[in-house]
C-alpha cells in the first residue's frame, strides 16, 4: 500500500510516551526536505500525538494506518 519511497524507518513499538515522538523528532532532524520517514508505534496516545506534532512542526503525515494495535505513520520532512 506504500506509494512513495521510504527514506528512513523508525521502530518505536513498545516505547512509552513521549519517546515515539522524541525519536521521530530526532530522526527528522537528520533528514533532507521531501524525504519520508516511516514510524511504527504502539503507544495508545500515538494517533493524537503524531497529529499534534505534525500540525505544530509542519512536517505532514502523508500516510497513516493501524494494524492490530500497531500504528504506522509516514511523515514527510518539510
Amino acid at each position: 500500500m506504500t506509494t512513495a519511497v521510504i527514506t528512513q524507518k523508525l521502530d518505536a513499538r513498545g516505547l512509552n510516551c513521549p519517546m515515539p515522538i522524541v525519536k521521530t523528532a530526532i530522526a527528522i532532524k537528520t533528514m533532507a526536505s521531501g524525504e519520508l520517514l516511516e514510524v511504527l508505534a504502539t503507544d495508545p496516545g500515538a494517533v493524537k500525538d503524531f497529529a499534534a506534532w505534525s500540525k505544530s512542526t509542519g512536517h505532514p503525515i502523508v500516510e497513516q494506518s493501524t494494524d492490530e494495535g500497531v500504528y504506522r505513520f509516514v511523515i514527510e520532512k518539510k
Partner: peptide, 11 residues
C-alpha cells in the same frame, strides 16, 4: 521529564 521531552520535540 516527559513534559520536558514532549515540549522539546515540538521545538
Amino acid at each position: 521529564a516527559v513534559l520536558t521531552a514532549g515540549a522539546a520535540a515540538l521545538g
